[in-house]
C-alpha cells in the first residue's frame, strides 16, 4: 500500500481515526505497528503511512526542519522588508505633518507672547494667555524634535564636519548648563581630558547631545546633589559620560530609553519631556560612527555615556 493522505475537517478527526482503526483491524493490521497515522497542517491532514526505518524517519525530519528553517529565514526577511517600508512611510508622514504644524504653532506662540503682556487683560486672562504661550513653546519644541528625528531616521543626518578641540566643546556645554543647575543647588563637576584632542566632528550636533544629556541629568537630579561629567580617550575614541544622583532607570526602561516617545516608568523629572531627545542623541552619535548607552541601577542614579571614534 502506498502512503495515503486524507484532507478532513478538524471536527471529524476522531470519527475518521476510528474508521481507520476499524478498517485496519478488519485486515488484521495494527496502527502503530503496521501503519502510522501522522497528523500535519494544523490537524487537518491525516497521513496513513507505512512505518519508516529509524534512519529514514530522522532523515525526513531533518529535511523537514531544514525546509522550515529556510522558509522562516525567507519569511523573516520579507517581514523585515515590509516593516522597513512601513517605518519609512511613517517617518515621511510624521515629517510632513510636523512641517505643516510648524507655521500655525509659530503664529500662536507669537500672538500669545504679545497678548500675555497686554495691560488691558485681566490678571486671570493674562495667566491663561501665559499658559497658552508656554504650551505653544512646548509644541514648537516637539514639532522641531519630530522634524529632526524624522530627517535622521530617513537617513538624512547631514554632518557638518570640522576639526574641533573636544575638551573646549564639552566645557562650553557644561558652563551653559551651570546656571540651570545652580537654581537647584546642583553642582556639575567636570573631569576632562588631560591633553588637547582634536577631531573632525559636527560640533553643533555633538554639543546638542552633551547639552541634552546634562539637561536630562539636571531634570532628574535631587536638589543639592552632584552631577559628574567625565571625558576620556579609549581605543582611539572619545568617551564622554554624565553621572547623576537621581532616581536611576529601571532595567526594562534602559533597553528602550533611546527609542522615540519612550517615557520612564518612574518619570519624576522637573519638566515635561517630549520624549525625543535621547532618540535624536542616538541618531547623531551613530551618524558619527559611535555608540550611546546608559548604566544604571534603579534608585542609585544614572550614567549616560557616548563614545565617538577620533579621526
Amino acid at each position: 500500500m502506498k502512503n495515503t493522505s486524507l484532507i478532513i475537517s478538524s471536527s471529524r478527526l476522531t470519527e475518521v481515526e476510528n474508521m481507520i482503526l476499524e478498517t485496519l483491524e478488519a485486515h488484521g493490521l495494527q496502527l502503530g505497528t503496521d501503519f502510522h497515522l501522522r497528523t500535519e497542517e494544523a490537524g487537518t491532514v491525516q497521513q496513513l503511512e507505512k512505518p519508516k526505518s529509524e534512519d529514514q524517519f530522522y532523515f525526513d525530519e531533518l529535511t523537514r526542519l531544514n525546509n522550515e528553517f529556510i522558509k522562516a529565514q525567507r519569511e523573516l526577511a520579507k517581514a523585515n522588508a515590509g516593516l522597513k517600508e512601513m517605518v519609512e512611510l511613517r517617518n515621511r508622514f510624521v515629517g510632513m505633518a510636523a512641517h505643516d504644524l510648524r507655521n500655525p504653532i509659530s503664529i500662536i506662540r507669537s500672538f500669545s507672547e504679545i497678548l500675555k503682556n497686554d495691560a488691558d487683560l485681566s490678571t486671570d486672562n493674562q495667566e491663561i494667555t501665559a499658559i497658552m504661550h508656554r504650551t505653544a513653546i512646548f509644541m514648537q519644541k516637539l514639532v522641531d524634535s519630530i522634524l529632526d528625528l524624522s530627517a535622521m531616521q530617513s537617513g538624512k543626518v547631514s554632518l557638518n564636519l570640522a576639526e574641533v578641540e573636544i575638551n573646549q566643546l564639552f566645557e562650553r556645554m557644561i558652563v551653559q548648563n551651570q546656571i540651570l543647575a545652580n537654581q537647584h543647588g546642583i553642582s556639575i563637576i567636570y573631569d576632562g581630558l588631560d591633553q588637547e584632542v582634536k577631531s573632525s566632528i559636527d560640533s553643533v550636533k555633538i554639543g546638542q547631545v552633551v547639552n541634552n544629556l546634562i539637561n536630562n541629568s539636571i531634570k532628574y537630579s535631587p536638589d543639592n546633589s552632584t552631577i559628574t561629567c567625565t571625558a576620556r580617550i579609549r581605543d582611539n575614541a572619545c568617551l564622554f559620560c554624565v553621572q547623576d544622583e537621581g532616581p536611576g532607570i529601571a532595567k526594562e526602561d534602559a533597553i528602550k530609553i533611546f527609542e522615540p516617545f519612550q517615557r520612564l516608568s518612574n518619570n519624576e523629572g522637573r519638566q515635561k519631556s517630549v520624549g525625543l531627545g535621547l532618540s535624536i542623541c542616538k541618531n547623531i552619535i551613530e551618524a558619527h560612527g559611535g555608540k550611546i548607552w546608559v548604566n544604571s541601577v534603579e534608585g542609585k542614579g544614572a550614567d549616560f555615556c557616548f563614545s565617538i571614534p577620533l579621526s
Binding site: 500535519e40 529535511t63 525567507r74
Partner: peptide, 16 residues
C-alpha cells in the same frame, strides 16, 4: 511573490 516549500515535500502539503 514567492512561497518556497523546499526539498522532499509531501504532496498533501504542496496541494494545501
Amino acid at each position: 511573490d514567492t512561497v518556497y516549500l523546499g526539498a522532499n515535500m509531501p504532496n498533501s502539503g504542496i496541494l494545501e
